[in-house]
Design a protein around this nucleic acid. Structure first.
Length: 402
DNA sequence: CGAGATTCATGTGAAGTATACCTTTAGGCTTAA
DNA sequence: AAGCCTAAAGGTATACTTCACATGAATCTCGTA
């Protein structure tokens, strides 16, 4: 037995294609960023005043997912921190918050709580008036002279879900501070995001703006090559692998994150298969796997009531032979499901909101339509592909005990 | 025949409720002097 | 008497409910050509 295992381990170690897989992880910040020199310089120029204790302008970054917004900002922040440390100071702080839905920070209160946590303080999960959380935040910031830069990633999500009032409050905080100053960096995936904003917020937050263009296939190739060099062993990649990865990702509006994920997972697939090289076929498999994993992960994380609603929609799909349903259909199915599974039944009002949230998550696609005499409703289309359907069903059954 | 009124099935906003959790405060108990 | 703990009081955020009004095109109505 031991010999057998040894053999497995041996072949694993021997067939290792990766040198350092972490380089391909999105969290990795490479020390040279390809095709983003211009943007980095601009960001650096805008933030530079913070080094001398002056308030840097608020900054707004636009660009589709995977165009390097977060990366560039983090890179500049790291460099600035290094610099500050060199000079033996520590009056500059960066706080990075991701406001993506479903994450911890998707309401005003929770965003603020996250910021405080990032500054080393702590706030209860609930119970405090938002106002006093602001006070605590100010106190924490103002206890000594310092510059604070708050980075709000995927800020459009937070504003869409709540309102822009918290941004207004944040931009106003400066006037209550004696010693310190805060600067805000908003990162948004949506290019039209600014139109949703209150004019006051727009003008104060958008002191500086920067648009990140999407990468084209060639740029993506450069990025991939750059990272593959250190993460894969020599000769581990078939020569057409990188072009194909780039092409795949370029098709999805030049998403570099996607390209890197693709390459990494392709490597993992190849390794698991015991292949000596990553070849094109592995990329196709990786593509499937990524799509699958992301969606299933999103489903798994949903609260029970949300899962019930989703399962109802899926059930309608497999029983009826239609491609879209209306809120009423879903709600009736949902009621049945709840009584079957002995779960509390939420009102249709609430279910309607839940459906809307699923739309935002991209698991379904909805459109409010009027059917004339048959009233007004949402047309709901499931966006879960056939390949994943049964896996998704399985996950839901599991967690709902069906 | 066509303009306007009707209608249906929900969308949507506002206000209210339940729950879980937080801080403050007052009273009671313990402890040390 | 001082210090500490506990329970009650008073307050908030969040998820959800209740109530009420808004929607918008198919369909109906009815006056008119």
């Amino acid at each position: 037995m031991v010999a057998k295992l040894d053999k497995i381990f041996d072949s694993f170690v021997k067939n290792r294609l990766f040198k350092d897989k972490s380089i391909l992880q999105i969290s990795h910040t490479p020390n040279n960023i390809t095709h983003r020199d211009e943007q980095i310089e601009e960001v650096a120029a805008i933030l530079a005043p913070a080094l001398t204790g002056e308030k840097a302008s608020n900054l707004f970054l636009f660009g589709k997912t995977g165009t390097g917004k977060t990366l560039c900002v983090k890179y500049v922040c790291d460099e600035m921190l290094k610099r500050v440390k060199q000079d033996g100071q520590d009056n500059l702080k960066f706080v990075y918050i991701n406001c993506k839905m479903g994450k911890a920070a998707d309401t005003e209160y929770r965003i603020l709580a996250e910021i405080i946590k990032g500054l080393g303080g702590s706030v209860p999960i609930t119970g405090l008036p938002t106002g006093s959380v602001y006070d605590k935040f100010k106190e924490l910031v103002d206890e000594r002279k310092q510059m604070i830069v708050i980075i709000l990633d995927e800020i459009d999500q937070a504003v869409k879900k709540n309102s822009d009032s918290f941004l207004y409050s944040l931009t106003r905080v400066n006037s209550d501070l004696k010693n310190s100053q805060i600067s805000l960096i908003g990162i948004s995936n949506s290019l039209v995001f600014k139109d949703y904003l209150d004019p006051r917020v727009r003008s104060s937050l958008g002191e500086e703006e920067l648009v990140f263009p999407s990468y084209n296939a060639l740029q993506l190739q450069d990025i991939l090559k750059n990272r593959a060099e250190n993460s894969f062993k020599e000769g581990a990649l078939d020569e057409d692998v990188i072009p194909k990865c780039a092409a795949f990702a370029a098709r999805e509006h030049g998403d570099a994150r996607r390209a890197l994920d693709l390459l990494r997972v392709a490597g993992e697939v190849a390794e698991r298969e015991g292949s000596k090289k990553v070849i094109q076929g592995h990329i196709d498999k990786a593509n499937d796997k990524l799509e699958k994993d992301n969606m299933l992960e999103a489903i798994k994380k949903q609260p029970i009531q949300f899962q019930l609603v989703l399962y109802s929609i899926m059930k309608l799909y497999s029983s009826k032979n239609k491609s879209s349903f209306f809120t009423g259909d879903v709600f009736r199915e949902y009621e049945n499901l709840c009584s079957e599974t002995k779960n509390d039944v939420l009102t249709q009002r609430r279910v309607s909101d839940i459906i809307q949230e699923f739309d935002m998550l991209g698991l379904i696609n909805t459109e409010v339509i009027s059917k004339g005499r048959q009233g007004r409703t949402r047309e709901i289309k499931l966006m879960i592909s056939k390949k994943i359907f049964s896996n998704a069903e399985g996950i839901l059954r599991d967690s709902l005990n069906i």
